[in-house]
Amino acid sequence: MKSRSWSAKTASTVESMVVEMSAQHPAYDALPADLQSKIFEVFEHQGQVGMRCNAADQRTLLEHFRLSQNYDFLVDVTAIDHLGKDAPERFEVVYMLRALQSNHSFFRLHVWLDERLASLPSVFDLWDSARWGERETHDMFGIVFDGNPDLRRFLMPEDFPGFPLLKDYPLKGRDERRQFPKVVARGDRMVEEEPDPYPTSIGRQMHTPDYIEEVRRDSKPRE
C-alpha cells in the first residue's frame, strides 16, 4: 500500500522536530555551525550517540564524520521500513560508524528517505565497507545507492524478483520458494520437470533501477 499522505505529513513533522530539538549535546556542539543546522535530532543510548538528518544532507554529514572526525570504520549500513507507522518518511537509512583508531566510540546517522526517491549517494569512496552494506540494503529494501559500482543481489538469489524486508512484501513470499524444477524418477533415470511459471501475482517490482529512474522523472524536485 503506497500512501501519498506520507509526503503531506513529511514537511510539518520534520519542521516540528527541528523546533523540538533541545539538547546541546557535546557531539552536536562539536559540529560546525553549517552542519548543525542539518541535524534535527540528537539522541544518546547507552553512551552511543545518534543523529537524524534528511536525505539531502547525508553525504555532507558523512563526509564530515569521515574526514574531520575520527570515524574511520563503517560498521554497517542498513535501513528501516516505517510503512504504516507515524514517521516523517517511509525509509530510515542507518549508518553505523565507529572510531577504531581513537576512542572506539560508536556513532549512528539516521537518514530519512522518501520512498519515491528511494536512492542516496553511495559512500563507498569514504569507507570501503559501504560497498557491501549498501549492496545488502539494496538487496533487502530496493534502495539504490547512486555511484556504488556493484549493486548486484547480495543475499538473495540473483534472479530473485522482490525486496523481502519491505513491510509490504509478504512474509511467506510470493511463491518464489516453489519455483524449482522437480527431480523425479522416471524409469531408471532422473529427469527434471519444468517448474511452474512464476505466478503473475509477483507483478511489477518497486525500487528497481528502472523504477527509480521512472520515479525521478515523475517526482517533483524536493524543496
Binding site: 512474509l171 516453489r178 524449482f180
Partner: peptide
Amino acid sequence: FDTYTLIQGVDQFIP
C-alpha cells in the same frame, strides 16, 4: 521457518 526464503520440504523437489 515458514518464510519467503525457506523451502517447505525438500521432497517437493527431490525424491
